[in-house]
Amino acid sequence: MSANGSEPLLSVRDLHTTFPLRSALLRRVTGHVQAVAGVSFDLRRGETLGLVGESGSGKSTLARTVIGLERAASGTVTFDGRELTSASPAELRAARRDVQMIFQDPYSSLNPRRTAGQIVAEAWEIHPGVVPRSRWRDEARDLLARVGLDPSHADRYPHQFSGGQRQRLGIARALALRPKLVICDEAVSALDVSIQAQVLNLLADLQADLGLTYLFIAHDLSVVRHVSDRVAVMYAGRVVELAEQEEIFRRPTHPYTQALLSAVPVPRPWSQPPRERILLTGDVPSPADPPSGCRFRTRCWKARDECAEVEPALEPRLGLHPSACHFAELPAAHR
């Protein structure tokens, strides 16, 4: 279609996803969880957008809505020029071939009753015509080799692989349809550090070779910094700050981003100038009953009356990148 190089690959506008809250006894709907509450962003071709935030902030729900596993309550998702939220099931299925996902849990995300080769070939079973059946075996072995698995292990079952190898298998499956966009939902979070580093390197190589675009979800900021070109910070269903990687880590202007950064453990704290540690108090607010105005105000040390009344928009502040805080300012070290 109108897939020219300059328009974004993925464009999300004012996306909302809600889940009904049911009473335990009668299963009556008693309210709604706003898991994603008005998120907009663009994903450029070939870039990696990192998505960070605490658990429950809506990262997975956002990803699952983009890929069509959850239904959007409102808003639009435009992929490669096609509007998906209003697309027909057939159109959706076609578009889905171009968007694939790598899951967090390398144990539950692979069908335990299929061999590695069958797992990789399943996509071709579903979309006949992509790869002729006679080529499945060879193509599957190529893919396994591509992600660093021994092709002779194609007949093994998932439980015969280690966690890191399973994650590679999940990556191979996601690549089988030659997608344009790959969503990595905590794809390395469950792995040990040494294995995590191996998988991060693999993802970087694949991006360079295949021109992939990544939406990379993680809660580990060091990992996100390592892989991302741009970073979006989510809090309670909203994006509160969005900027180039350098900007987010050097010049965060939203208090939540600043707190998040200051909480990241540093391997050798003694080798650095002492950092100002911002210790947040309190908990993430319940998404069923978010605070009025700025959702962060219940934990924000800078909150004032205005924060409870007016919801801050995600817009450029201080002449810098977009940040959703009325009182956005650079961290003390920069002032």
Partner: peptide, 24 residues
């Protein structure tokens, strides 16, 4: 050493990681 080198850094240049090869 390998574990230390596997951890991505919050500061410093974003180099390719040098993980411990293989698996436990």
């Amino acid at each position: 050493r390998g574990l230390m080198a596997s951890i991505p850094d919050l500061d410093g240049p974003r180099e390719r990681l040098t993980p411990v090869r293989g698996a436990p």
